[in-house]
């Protein structure tokens, strides 16, 4: 499918990168192998400026109001929110588990930090995900190079600052390769946060 190129409009503030919103929802009856995962993620739209972002975002349901097993993803245009994507395959993610009720606020804050280029790690950031689950919600930020410790530490420190996380917040880094191995061992499940 050819998509129209998205560019900032007149008088708008351009973003460093274009970003695409995705939505996915797990069908409980189906095992989430790569094919079904890919069928379940939907591109919603791409933004190129701060104003386009707000216009789009303001019309979205807040993640905290989503039900069931669903995810919002905001990734740089051209990167699919899947482990298998070229930009993600050597990468990993920081994971923060959130108690219920916090997802909407943390989601907005992590997006603003990404769009505003607050992480200062060059081209390393791929995107962010908020995963709505039954007991707790999960926020994650994906980067390209899992074994680059300078980058991953800087992302962690920036997250603590921009999300204003209490010092005792547990943050876990997972490489996509490990996620893939771990999940496929049990279920053949090998895509995003499942």
């Amino acid at each position: 499918i050819r998509r129209k190129t998205v560019t900032p409009g007149a008088g708008e503030h351009p973003l460093q990168y274009n970003y695409t919103f995705w939505y996915s929802r797990r069908t409980p009856s189906r095992p989430a192998n790569t094919q079904s995962y890919e069928q379940n993620i939907r591109q919603m739209g791409t933004v190129a400026s701060v104003e386009q972002f707000w216009k789009f975002y303001s019309h979205l349901v807040r993640p905290g109001d989503l039900t069931g097993h669903s995810d919002f993803h905001l990734f740089k245009e051209g990167i699919k929110p899947m482990w298998e994507d070229e930009a993600n395959k050597n990468g990993g993610k920081w994971i923060i588990r959130l108690r219920k009720g916090l997802a909407s606020r943390f989601w907005e804050n992590i997006i603003l930090a990404m769009l505003g280029e607050q992480f200062m790690v060059g081209e390393e950031i791929c995107g962010v995900v908020v995963s709505i689950r039954f007991q707790e919600d999960i926020l994650s930020i994906w980067n390209k190079t899992a074994n680059d410790q300078v980058t991953t530490s800087r992302i962690r420190d920036t997250l603590r600052r921009v999300l204003n996380l209490p010092p005792n917040t547990i943050m876990e880094y997972k490489t996509h390769n490990d996620s893939l191995k771990y999940m496929s061992q049990f279920t053949g499940d090998n895509s995003s946060f499942r």
Partner: peptide
């Protein structure tokens, strides 16, 4: 090249611009 950096306050202020609504 130059990097386009925006702080949180600036981004939030843009939310109220007529173009963003």
């Amino acid at each position: 090249g130059t990097r386009i950096i925006y702080d949180r306050k600036f981004l939030l202020d843009c939310r109220n611009s007529p173009i963003a609504r």
